[in-house]
Lab assay of single mutants.
Amino acid sequence: MTEYKLVVVGAGGVGKSALTIQLIQNHFVDEYDPTIEDSYRKQVVIDGETCLLDILDTAGQEEYSAMRDQYMRTGEGFLCVFAINNTKSFEDIHHYREQIKRVKDSEDVPMVLVGNKCDLPSRTVDTKQAQDLARSYGIPFIETSAKTRQGVDDAFYTLVREIRKHKEKMSKDGKKKKKKSKTKCVIM
């Protein structure tokens, strides 16, 4: 069974824990209790493949930012979460993405942009803004509501699919490099 290491990042209060708990335990946590770091595991079937999701729910508070490099190193894919009623959390996505790329030393890291709290009427981040940002990053965008469960499975499952595509691409690139290195030079 394939294991996928997913990391949920975003500013404090955007609903990272609520999304994760909704996926794992099928219930909505409405009281806000700032996370330092929590880890969850769940076995699911995605596109006919049974897999184990190892999900790291991270601290959004700035005082825990020193811990970010460590979990970013171990993560295979990242859910970059903002709240649709919090423009600052949307603007912060850029910083999370840049930090992930720096730590992973790669421009090509599996990510999904997630606009959470889409059940709320007080939207300050337009869907088109988020779609445009995701398009500019070359990553999928999904709106979710941890409260109603809308888009929750889709967000995590899409990230797994992005990781699969990335692994497939990397193995193809690896095979191309191996083929090239088999060419021999004969000096007579």
Rank of each mutant, 00 (worst) to 15 (best):
residue 127 T to P: 05
residue 152 V to P: 11
residue 77 G to Q: 01
residue 174 G to W: 02
residue 99 Q to N: 15
residue 172 K to V: 11
residue 132 D to K: 07
residue 43 Q to P: 10
residue 155 A to L: 08
residue 28 F to W: 09
residue 34 P to Y: 05
residue 125 V to I: 10
residue 2 T to D: 15
residue 30 D to G: 09
residue 176 K to R: 05
residue 11 A to H: 10
residue 64 Y to G: 00
residue 137 Y to V: 13
residue 91 E to F: 06
residue 111 M to N: 02
residue 187 I to N: 11
residue 108 D to S: 09
residue 135 R to F: 04
residue 182 K to Y: 11
residue 109 V to G: 03
residue 14 V to F: 13
residue 29 V to H: 07
residue 50 T to Q: 15
residue 5 K to F: 02
residue 183 T to A: 12
residue 100 I to W: 03
residue 176 K to Q: 06
residue 188 M to N: 14
residue 29 V to Y: 05
residue 176 K to L: 12
residue 154 D to C: 05
residue 3 E to G: 05
residue 187 I to C: 15
residue 9 V to M: 06
residue 28 F to T: 02
residue 134 A to Q: 09
residue 159 L to K: 03
residue 116 N to V: 15
residue 160 V to D: 04
residue 149 R to D: 13
residue 176 K to W: 08
residue 160 V to E: 12
residue 114 V to L: 09
residue 14 V to W: 09
residue 134 A to M: 07
residue 38 D to I: 00
residue 19 L to V: 10
residue 180 K to V: 15
residue 90 F to A: 13
residue 83 A to Q: 13
residue 159 L to N: 03
residue 22 Q to R: 10
residue 162 E to R: 08
residue 157 Y to I: 13
residue 125 V to M: 10
residue 49 E to W: 05
residue 37 E to Y: 03
residue 38 D to Q: 02
residue 103 V to E: 10
residue 9 V to N: 04
residue 106 S to G: 12
residue 57 D to H: 00
residue 131 Q to L: 05
residue 160 V to Y: 10
residue 122 S to I: 06
residue 58 T to K: 00
residue 15 G to R: 00
residue 114 V to W: 02
residue 107 E to F: 04
residue 162 E to M: 06
residue 52 L to C: 12
residue 8 V to M: 05
residue 167 K to A: 08
residue 21 I to P: 00
residue 45 V to M: 14
residue 26 N to E: 14
residue 20 T to Q: 03
residue 51 C to A: 11
residue 43 Q to W: 06
residue 69 D to T: 04
residue 27 H to I: 12
residue 122 S to M: 08
residue 54 D to K: 03
residue 62 E to W: 02
residue 127 T to S: 09
residue 44 V to S: 12
residue 121 P to D: 14
residue 159 L to S: 02
residue 180 K to L: 06
residue 104 K to S: 10
residue 76 E to H: 05
residue 152 V to D: 09
residue 22 Q to C: 04
residue 136 S to A: 13
residue 137 Y to F: 06
residue 14 V to Y: 13
residue 158 T to I: 09
residue 160 V to K: 10
residue 164 R to F: 12
residue 36 I to Q: 01
residue 14 V to D: 10
residue 130 A to E: 10
residue 126 D to H: 07
residue 35 T to Y: 00
residue 131 Q to V: 10
residue 80 C to N: 03
residue 167 K to D: 09
residue 180 K to R: 09
residue 17 S to Q: 01
residue 8 V to H: 06
residue 33 D to A: 01
residue 65 S to F: 06
residue 29 V to N: 08
residue 48 G to D: 10
residue 116 N to R: 01
residue 37 E to T: 00
residue 141 F to L: 11
residue 113 L to H: 02
residue 177 K to W: 06
residue 3 E to N: 14
residue 20 T to C: 07
residue 121 P to A: 11
residue 51 C to R: 10
residue 9 V to A: 07
residue 173 D to A: 10
residue 43 Q to R: 14
residue 185 C to Q: 15
residue 53 L to N: 13
residue 160 V to C: 14
residue 12 G to A: 13
residue 101 K to Y: 14
residue 116 N to A: 14
residue 8 V to A: 09
residue 90 F to H: 07
residue 113 L to D: 02
residue 12 G to I: 04
residue 28 F to M: 04
residue 152 V to K: 14
residue 97 R to D: 10
residue 168 E to Y: 06
residue 163 I to Y: 02
residue 3 E to H: 07
residue 40 Y to R: 01
residue 79 L to E: 01
residue 149 R to Q: 14
residue 69 D to R: 01
residue 29 V to M: 11
residue 101 K to G: 08
residue 137 Y to P: 12
residue 182 K to A: 15
residue 119 D to F: 12
residue 47 D to V: 04
residue 35 T to W: 00
residue 105 D to I: 14
residue 155 A to E: 06
residue 79 L to Y: 04
residue 102 R to K: 15
residue 95 H to W: 03
residue 182 K to F: 12
residue 150 Q to V: 06
residue 12 G to S: 11
residue 48 G to R: 09
residue 93 I to K: 01
residue 106 S to M: 15
residue 133 L to H: 14
residue 116 N to L: 15
residue 23 L to E: 14
residue 3 E to A: 09
residue 35 T to N: 00
residue 156 F to C: 04
residue 52 L to P: 15
residue 157 Y to F: 09
residue 115 G to Y: 08
residue 80 C to M: 08
residue 159 L to A: 04
residue 69 D to E: 11
residue 93 I to Y: 11
residue 130 A to T: 10
residue 184 K to S: 10
residue 90 F to N: 04
residue 112 V to C: 08
residue 98 E to S: 05
residue 122 S to T: 08
residue 96 Y to S: 13
residue 92 D to R: 12
residue 128 K to E: 04
residue 47 D to T: 09
residue 18 A to W: 01
residue 173 D to S: 14
residue 68 R to N: 01
residue 111 M to Y: 03
residue 69 D to G: 04
residue 48 G to K: 08
residue 152 V to L: 11
residue 118 C to G: 08
residue 57 D to I: 00
residue 44 V to F: 06
residue 164 R to D: 15
residue 96 Y to E: 02
residue 88 K to T: 15
residue 156 F to G: 01
residue 138 G to K: 04
residue 64 Y to C: 01
residue 66 A to M: 06
residue 130 A to Q: 08
residue 121 P to E: 12
residue 114 V to C: 06
residue 2 T to Q: 13
residue 107 E to N: 09
residue 106 S to W: 09
residue 118 C to S: 09
residue 170 M to K: 07
residue 120 L to M: 11
residue 54 D to R: 03
residue 88 K to S: 14
residue 20 T to L: 05
residue 153 D to M: 07
residue 64 Y to L: 06
residue 10 G to A: 11
residue 154 D to N: 07
residue 6 L to N: 03
residue 81 V to E: 12
residue 160 V to Q: 14
residue 16 K to L: 00
residue 119 D to Q: 12
residue 135 R to M: 09
residue 62 E to F: 02
residue 124 T to I: 07
residue 84 I to N: 15
residue 6 L to K: 02
residue 114 V to M: 07
residue 54 D to M: 03
residue 109 V to L: 04
residue 162 E to P: 04
residue 15 G to A: 02
residue 13 G to D: 13
residue 166 H to Q: 10
residue 63 E to A: 06
residue 130 A to H: 08
residue 50 T to F: 10
residue 116 N to T: 15
residue 129 Q to P: 11
residue 35 T to V: 00
residue 92 D to E: 15
residue 27 H to E: 15
residue 139 I to V: 07
residue 9 V to I: 09
residue 184 K to P: 09
residue 56 L to F: 00
residue 186 V to Y: 14
residue 165 K to G: 12
residue 74 T to M: 07
residue 59 A to E: 01
residue 77 G to E: 01
residue 186 V to G: 09
residue 158 T to P: 06
residue 88 K to D: 15
residue 38 D to L: 00
residue 73 R to Y: 08
residue 73 R to K: 07
residue 188 M to V: 09
residue 153 D to G: 07
residue 66 A to P: 12
residue 159 L to W: 03
residue 162 E to V: 04
residue 106 S to D: 12
residue 22 Q to K: 08
residue 8 V to G: 04
residue 128 K to R: 05
residue 155 A to M: 14
residue 29 V to P: 12
residue 137 Y to C: 07
residue 82 F to V: 15
residue 57 D to W: 00
residue 130 A to C: 11
residue 79 L to M: 04
residue 17 S to N: 00
residue 188 M to H: 15
residue 60 G to H: 00
residue 144 T to R: 03
residue 155 A to Y: 14
residue 172 K to Q: 06
residue 26 N to V: 04
residue 165 K to T: 15
residue 136 S to M: 09
residue 89 S to L: 02
residue 158 T to Y: 06
residue 174 G to A: 07
residue 127 T to N: 11
residue 180 K to S: 14
residue 98 E to I: 01
residue 106 S to H: 13
residue 77 G to D: 02
residue 73 R to N: 05
residue 15 G to D: 01
residue 77 G to A: 14
residue 46 I to W: 13
residue 44 V to H: 05
residue 103 V to Q: 02
residue 137 Y to N: 11
residue 75 G to D: 00
residue 105 D to R: 07
residue 18 A to S: 07
residue 13 G to N: 12
residue 102 R to Y: 05
residue 13 G to P: 15
residue 72 M to P: 00
residue 169 K to W: 03
residue 117 K to W: 14
residue 43 Q to T: 12
residue 183 T to P: 15
residue 42 K to I: 10
residue 172 K to F: 11
residue 163 I to R: 05
residue 115 G to M: 12
residue 157 Y to D: 08
residue 13 G to V: 13
residue 60 G to R: 00
residue 33 D to M: 01
residue 24 I to V: 07
residue 177 K to G: 08
residue 38 D to T: 00
residue 123 R to L: 10
residue 28 F to R: 02
residue 162 E to K: 08
residue 136 S to G: 07
residue 19 L to N: 15
residue 77 G to T: 07
residue 152 V to G: 10
residue 6 L to E: 01
residue 100 I to A: 04
residue 177 K to C: 09
residue 151 G to C: 04
residue 117 K to S: 14
residue 121 P to Y: 06
residue 34 P to H: 03
residue 101 K to M: 15
residue 177 K to E: 10
residue 111 M to L: 08
residue 32 Y to S: 02
residue 105 D to T: 08
residue 156 F to K: 00
residue 146 A to G: 13
residue 117 K to L: 15
residue 178 K to D: 14
residue 184 K to G: 12
residue 97 R to M: 15
residue 92 D to Y: 14
residue 21 I to G: 15
residue 103 V to F: 14
residue 38 D to Y: 01
residue 33 D to E: 05
residue 124 T to H: 09
residue 26 N to K: 11
residue 90 F to M: 15
residue 20 T to K: 00
residue 111 M to F: 09
residue 104 K to T: 10
residue 42 K to H: 12
residue 158 T to S: 12
residue 139 I to Y: 08
residue 62 E to G: 03
residue 87 T to V: 11
residue 168 E to V: 07
residue 2 T to L: 10
residue 141 F to S: 07
